[in-house]
Design a protein around this nucleic acid. Sequence first.
DNA 1: CAGTGGTCTAGACCACACC
DNA 2: GTGTGGTCTAGACCACTGG
Lengths: 235, 235
Amino acid sequence: MTKYEKVAGIIRERILSGEYPENTLIPNQTDFVEEFNVSRMTVNKAINMLMMEGLVYSQRGVGTYVLRNSSFKRSPTLANDYTGLTKGLKGRKIESRALLFKVDFPSEKIQEKLKIDGHIPVYEILRLRFVDDDPFVIEHTFMPTDLVPNLTTEIIEQSIYTYLDELGIEFAGAHRSIQADKPSELDQKYLECAPDDPVLEVEQVVYLKNSRPIEYSKSRNRYDKKRYTVLDVIQ
Amino acid sequence: MTKYEKVAGIIRERILSGEYPENTLIPNQTDFVEEFNVSRMTVNKAINMLMMEGLVYSQRGVGTYVLRNSSFKRSPTLANDYTGLTKGLKGRKIESRALLFKVDFPSEKIQEKLKIDGHIPVYEILRLRFVDDDPFVIEHTFMPTDLVPNLTTEIIEQSIYTYLDELGIEFAGAHRSIQADKPSELDQKYLECAPDDPVLEVEQVVYLKNSRPIEYSKSRNRYDKKRYTVLDVIQ
DNA sequence: CAGTGGTCTAGACCACACC
DNA sequence: GTGTGGTCTAGACCACTGG
């Protein structure tokens, strides 16, 4: 835990508790320097973190405003949500069924997306995931075999990302593209949706810390079960 | 233009030109300190910016990798895109038609979203926007009248955000929520879409620098005309 | 004008990866 | 160990806002 994280944590608590109310200025950076016995650079970095979270906004010559109040605690960010399932699902019954699990050499498109040569085999996985016994999302995933050894049907029917965690694999981030689409026959069959029910498609490439893409996938979600939230802070 | 922006700009150019190839390490921070005659803190901040852009990834004990190569120049970020229209539309013919433009006291939901009292009147605007004469998006927008004086039909048929720019209004950021939906009758009529064409709905609240929400809107886009891209970097 | 946050420095110590 | 990036300091100068 770094100093600036501690400082940010304390200020965040004060905002969420209402000690620093919405639409007011919080103490200036010099005050925090004295209170926490750290340098102003450290205070500045802490406040910058809170700005990234959308909790405050700093303006030169004015001060730092509280943007969000205590009644708005839920995080709107999606970082770390690589599972295809949102965080609001804790405590609910989640199951996966493998519809396809095979290994093959990558097509040109997959080579391009995963930035690999054609001679490295990739897993191709089609999974149907259920929440409380209702179909929720179909995931079509490609992963290079050299990065993810010994994948089994058992693993993919539980959680691939739990397995990757156990392997000590760490992620750097992801590119995502989101669009609406008409349901394919596959969607209609497995997501149990009507021909006029739209689907929300999320296409993503997930990157490892060492810069290699580890996953290219398209997820097709029932339109009534998934929404995507984004926080956008101007820098 | 700050020093760290200049440094980041030079390094970015080298990456995009291929001088620092994908999947290789760029020079270490101390080398850049000597080359640019700045402190290491400045180099560090510059590289941090590039990391936020998804261009590089730094790892303690190892160095800084190039993540994206020159063939991937388009920016995946959406900051500043509050217009409902993506940036790839430059040079194309854009028109807006006002379907509704009135002033009224806000409902409870709008009061909550815009964080205002019920006695502040709000504009309610329904706009249909065209790209190259094809309907593209329906925007349903609410804005407090005290923040945006003298709005006219003329302005909303051109660009509201150009007008806000002229007023010197500056934005801090936005919350967005994206989902797929079935087309309403309004969608079918104005977006000229079939009953089974899905729509992509983007709901957003845009915040000013002084912390007040200035806009709450729902945009309904033709599914074949809009996709949403997000870059997600773990911090 | 005074007060604010943004940036920058020179140097330091540390955590981590790799050999 | 060596080399890397991450953090932190104490102090400085500047840009901006507001009276």
